[in-house]
Each structure stands twice: as structure tokens, then as C-alpha cells.
Design a protein around this nucleic acid. Sequence first.
DNA 1: ACCTGAACACCGTTCAAGT
DNA 2: ACCTGAACACCGTTCAAGT
Lengths: 197, 197
Amino acid sequence: MTETMTRYHHGDLRAAVLRRAEEVLRESGTDALSLRGIARDLGVSHAAPSAHFRDKNALFDALAVAGFRRLGEVMDAALATRGSLTDDLVTFASAYLEFATDNPALLSVMFARKHSETSGAEIAEAVAAAFAHPTALLTEGQARGEVVDGDPEVIGVTVLAAIQGLATFVGSGFVTPEQSQRMLEDVVATLMRGLAR
Amino acid sequence: MTETMTRYHHGDLRAAVLRRAEEVLRESGTDALSLRGIARDLGVSHAAPSAHFRDKNALFDALAVAGFRRLGEVMDAALATRGSLTDDLVTFASAYLEFATDNPALLSVMFARKHSETSGAEIAEAVAAAFAHPTALLTEGQARGEVVDGDPEVIGVTVLAAIQGLATFVGSGFVTPEQSQRMLEDVVATLMRGLAR
DNA sequence: ACCTGAACACCGTTCAAGT
DNA sequence: ACCTGAACACCGTTCAAGT
């Protein structure tokens, strides 16, 4: 009976489901993600994942949290070395867009509007952590007198929104990945300089 | 046999499917949208819609085109009367965010990354039309000497990206609709003035 | 051309039962 | 606590057949 060997006692099924779900998301997109398919891939019964994720939305919530944590790590790594403010903003934007290009399905799961009450707080925390580093750029810029005064949260949301919007345009195909590097520099330049003459 | 009366010959099933799909999207979200459910609601067989939409993605593509056309109409109506450039940008942003708040599921369908080759061109056209009016604000601002020189497309993408990003934040619940009016004004102010001191 | 009805291969979710 | 296996009510898609 070699069949039953690996069936029971998977070790950490929850982590295995999450890992496999991220793979499917990256390789085949959201539509291809099914609990039954993941269970099949992992060699457990189709109902096994429900012991760890109440329903499919709970899995999506967990993927969102994991996504923001990974995004935070990417940000920290990208902004480990600093240059001028403009350079740092371009670095931030590049890292964000690269993440968005590499994980388009995950990004849309992260920003899906259906997170449950319970996981909402956990996600909010992960979001704050992911954006802490880029937001700090502006606070430090203000301290050096390079950035206009004002609530850094207010200024930060503009920068984050512009980059997130650009990521959406790239993700939806209205902007090609080839154009994106150019556009990202233009967007940062426009943000720095302002619209008013 | 009163049952068979309205079954055949629906008139314009394609338009009816689109209309009902938009309703379901607004009332119950993307997950609740099924071809079979729509067919049921319209009193036709479950396979009838396939005569008008090759598959579910084709329906999503058609919804995206319809969505951008409606967004364009909203833009035109909102920007029919003009004020200062800042006021006009706030008006544009408000109209966009209101559309996003009223149709969150539709907006994510519009920016979903899976439009087919064939409908891609049609969607791109609808996107261009939807954003023509707001982009014109900047061109006219340049003509009046109120906006910095440079390719209006480049400046436009920054503005559009910032508003789209804010719409994503509102849609995902990271920003509440109550905060959004305040934030939108802050974002426009930051865009106008720039980050550099 | 437009639609029906049956068929196929999937889903998510629930739940008694096993270890 | 963790997992299985059967069951239920759905899906999307295809396809011969009808009008």
C-alpha cells in the first residue's frame, strides 16, 4: 500500500496550500485557482484545505496578507541603498512595478474588495508595513528640506496612488512593460515638479 | 402552454444579457456573475447566451467596453461646466471616484488583465474616449500658461494614475468613502504644487 | 440565425465517519 | 485536531437537434 504513505499527515498543509496557491496564481492566474485543484496537486483529499481555510475567500485573504508581506520585503531590499530623493522614488516605483509585472494576479487579489472583517486588520497591518519604507523617503526628504512641508501621510498617498495607478495600467495592458520604465520616470518627475507653472 | 410564450425570440438577447450582467455586477459582485444565472433571469436556456458571447471572457470584455463608455459619459457630464484648473481636476477626480464607488466590481472588470486580442482594440478606443476630456484639461491649461510645458500625454498619465490609484485604495477599503473627498483634494493639491521644495 | 436540451467535466461547501 | 469520501447544488462549455 504505497499509496497511503504521503496522504495523511502532510506536515504543514496550511503553508503548503498557500505556497501552491501562489504558484498557480503566478503561472495560470486567478481563474485557474481552485481549492480542489490545489488539494489534488498536494495529494490530499479535496476537503482537506477546509480545515485550514474556512472558504475560498479566506484563502484569498491569506494570499493578500502574504502578498503585502512579500511586497514589503521587496521594498526594504530595493531601498536598502539610498541616492537622491528622485532616484529613490524611481527605485521605489521600479520595485513596485516589477512586483506588479511578475505577480499581476496576486496584486489584484491584494487589492480585491472583499476582505473579511477578521482578516481586515491583519491585512491593514501588512499594507502599512509594506508602504512604511517608501513613505519614510518623504519624511526624510522633509527633514533635509528637500520636500514641501505638510502631513507626510497626505503627500505619501499621492505618490503611492500614482504608482499603484501606473501598476494597474501596466497590469491591464494599457501600458506595455517596455513603456513602463520611461513612464515611471516621467511620473516621478511630474510628481516632483508639480503641474502648476 | 403559457410557459413557452416568452421563451423564444427575446428580441435583443445580447443587449439584455449585458444589461442584466451589469445589474448583477453592481448588486452582487463579480463572484455572483454566472452565464447560467443570467440566462435563468432572462427566461432563456442556459446555452442561449453563447450565441452572442463566445465564452465568459467575451462577456467580461463587452462589459469592460460598456463600462469605459459609461465612464466617458460621466466625465463629459461632469466637465461640461468649467472653473479653475484645480477645481476642474477635483471635479474630474470626484466623478471618477463616484463611478468607482458606485461600480467597484465593474471597475475591476474594466482593468482586468485578460482582454482578448480582438476586443483589445475596441477597449483601447473606449479608454481613450473616456480619458479624452480630462486630458484636455491639461492641454488647455498649457495653452493658458497655467500648466508646465511638456508632452500632455506624459503629464496626463501621472494625473490619471494618481486618481486611478486612489480609486483602487477606496475600492479595496484601505481608504473609506468618507476620507476619499478629503484625500482627493489633497492629491490634486499635491499634483499641482509638486513635491520638491 | 437563434435557441433548446442533454451531456461532460469540472467547481465550492457540508458533514458523517475514521485515525 | 486533521483528514477522508460521499453527497449536494451549482458552474462553463460543447453539440446535435429543432424552428
